[in-house]
């Protein structure tokens, strides 16, 4: 037994060291950097400045817009993907013909990189071509929009592209979840005289909660960290008046274009804190589940 434990430890050691250095070490380093005045490639006297970078950050008009954009994006993207995914899964679960074919089609966008999706949607949502032309041809001119070039739309247009890409993924999750529900439960419900809606509301829906929760975690951290989709659609400037800008983009520009490393580190730490709001309760919840089992 002891021997096994030692072997296991030795085998784990390399990855433990790598994770300790390259994940936790660098997180710590970033945190430390964010408290200094290292806001240039070369600073003659590096010193701690406390929370100055954070104060500046929260006072910055661009960062305020970014936080609001993240909220708007999440509120459209997460429910949008969940509802579309659930809807698709329910339809496919009725046993339509060619289920495998449709499943593949809906899941395919997830296999694409955000850059590919972004370029395609950038063309689709170009105000003088793409979707607007289609709407015109169909007599649906009222649907026309400036999309990502209209400051009033901005991030909402990006959220549409993201929904397109990830609703197939939530569909696959829900489909697996639906398949895992024992048939007997529906039979029992039927015996008790439940309508199809009641069966969905009181059997399907509660039993899908774990799936929904995992999906929210995955989608939630995507929406907090989104970067490539925004760059591909709205460009590195984040659209007019930062209407499509997100914190990750601001971090990139601050760090790698403006050389304000400490300021960029502060943005990263804020992002980390936001993501941990999402991940820590989830870890807590899933660990508790395991113990209960």
């Amino acid at each position: 037994m002891r021997r096994y434990r030692r072997t296991a430890f030795l085998l784990l050691l390399p990855s433990l060291v790598l994770v300790a250095v390259f994940v936790y070490g660098f997180i710590f380093w970033t945190g430390e950097l964010s408290l200094t005045n290292q806001n240039d490639l070369f600073v003659p006297q590096v010193r701690f400045v406390g929370l100055e970078n954070y104060q500046r950050l929260f006072a910055h008009p661009r960062f305020q817009i970014d936080l609001r954009n993240t909220l708007v994006f999440s509120l459209i993207f997460i429910p949008g993907s969940l509802i579309l995914g659930l809807f698709g899964a329910l339809l496919l679960n009725t046993g339509v013909r060619g289920e495998g074919f449709f499943r593949t089609i809906f899941l395919m966008p997830m296999a694409l990189s955000f850059i590919v999706t972004g370029v395609a949607w950038r063309w689709l949502m170009n105000p003088t071509s793409g979707l607007n032309l289609l709407f015109d041809a169909l007599g649906l001119g009222f649907l026309k929009s400036g999309w990502y070039t209209d400051p009033a739309v901005g991030i909402k247009a990006i959220a549409l592209a993201a929904i397109w890409q990830l609703s197939g993924y939530t569909m696959a999750l829900y489909l697996a979840g639906l398949r895992a529900i024992p048939r007997e439960l529906y039979e029992a419900a039927e015996v008790d005289g439940a309508t199809p809606w009641q069966a969905f509301r009181y059997v399907t829906f509660p039993l899908l909660t774990p799936v929904t929760l995992s999906a929210v975690i995955v989608l939630g951290h995507i929406s907090l960290k989104i970067f490539d989709l925004v760059v591909a659609i709205a460009g590195i400037s984040g659209g007019p008046a930062f209407s499509s800008d997100v914190p990750a983009l601001f971090m990139f520009v601050t760090t790698f274009q403006a050389n304000r490393f400490a300021q960029g580190a502060a943005i990263s730490i804020v992002l980390l804190v936001l993501v941990s709001f999402l991940v820590i309760p989830y870890l807590y919840w899933s660990l508790r589940q395991e113990v209960a089992e």
Partner: peptide
């Protein structure tokens, strides 16, 4: 320098839409 230019670019991003001269 690059950080100064980045700050001016930020200003322009807002100004082109808002036209807010004071800000």
């Amino acid at each position: 320098k690059e950080s100064w230019l980045a700050a001016i670019n930020d200003t322009m991003s807002l100004f082109v839409t808002s036209r807010n001269v004071d800000q």
